[in-house]
């Protein structure tokens, strides 16, 4: 195993492209070191991207924010402005693990680990986030929902990695929220997660919405029916019932050590409803 800490994207891409065997990116390391420790993976090359300029920065861009791949959850929270615009995204990221994990874990790592239960992913999807993928051939911007393919598998090609996440400017009267269910109060993997973002008109009618569910399928789901259920409403009880029903209907979970199929289906609806109420309140300001 080799450890490299290049100081340019080009050098990092070069290392990854040429590498034989298994190579991994190191940013926060909170998934990578666990996988190495358990013997799940034995990388031949680890590329630490934290020395690359920009990786640990959050910069304003086109009214939104570009968040470097090595920005930790704690740094994201302390930034303040991102959380003001996209509270759902920041809250979701901050739910990952403990204070200690927050000191290291990144949104991009959460995304590229490709766990169906990743907390930040449904929230990013709801916010319309894109991932900037750098690689040997070109740089491309990809909707976050297109990165994870299946548990542990991404759409990234050899030599490619995600260098940053872009959160677009939130339109006026936009609110977002993310809720998850865990058996304890902390330190658990989501049994179900629900991310939602919505925009209202001046009368409080929802004009746009995006809803994403985590841990109820092989990857985070974008549920159009959930959005349809509330667009055009003022989030009255009937709209909330439709939303919950649509979320439960979309959930295609499995039973495992963390939860059962029935439980996940039911709670997907409960969380979608609760998250919508929070997001709506935030949108109204």
């Amino acid at each position: 195993m080799r450890y490299e800490a290049p100081d340019t994207i080009k050098a990092a891409v070069g290392l990854l492209s040429k590498a034989k065997g298994t190579s991994r990116i190191l940013a926060g390391g909170t998934d990578l070191l666990v996988q190495m420790r358990s013997g799940m993976i034995e990388p031949d090359l680890v590329v630490d991207i934290k020395s690359i300029p920009g990786m640990r920065e959050i910069v304003a861009e086109k009214g939104g924010f570009r968040i470097g791949a090595a920005v930790s959850g704690a740094e994201l929270e302390e930034h303040g402005k991102v959380g003001k615009m996209w509270p759902g995204v920041v809250e979701a990221t901050n739910l990952i693990g403990s204070t200690q994990i927050q000191g290291r874990a990144t949104m991009v790592g959460n995304l590229c680990n490709a766990s169906p239960a990743a907390d930040s992913v449904p929230a990013m999807i709801a916010a319309g986030a894109t991932a900037r993928v750098v690689g040997p051939k070109r740089t491309r911007d990809v909707p976050v929902e297109d990165i994870a393919k299946a548990p542990g598998k991404t759409s990234l090609a050899k030599g490619e990695f995600v260098a940053s996440i872009f959160l677009p400017k939130a339109p006026a009267r936009t609110g977002s929220a993310y809720l998850r269910f865990i058996p304890r109060t902390e330190m658990d993997i989501a049994v179900v997660g629900a991310g939602i973002a919505m925009t209202l008109n001046a009368k409080g009618v929802i004009t746009a919405a995006k809803v994403s569910l985590g841990a109820v399928a092989a990857r985070a789901l974008v549920v159009e029916e959930c959005a349809k259920a509330i667009i055009g409403s003022t989030l009255d009880d009937a709209a909330l019932d439709r939303l919950a029903a649509a979320a439960s209907a979309a959930a295609k979970p499995i039973s495992d050590k963390r939860g059962t199929v029935d439980f996940r289906i039911k709670v997907a609806g409960v969380l979608a409803r609760r998250a919508a109420v929070i997001a709506y309140d935030r949108a109204r300001g």
């Binding site: 390391g29 070191l33 420790r37 200690q100 994990i101 290291r104």
Partner: peptide
């Protein structure tokens, strides 16, 4: 603490 930030030292590489 790593640069003032609370972390688990088991999840930090010695090399970094």
């Amino acid at each position: 603490e790593l640069d003032g930030r609370l972390v688990c030292s088991c999840l930090v590489m010695g090399a970094e």
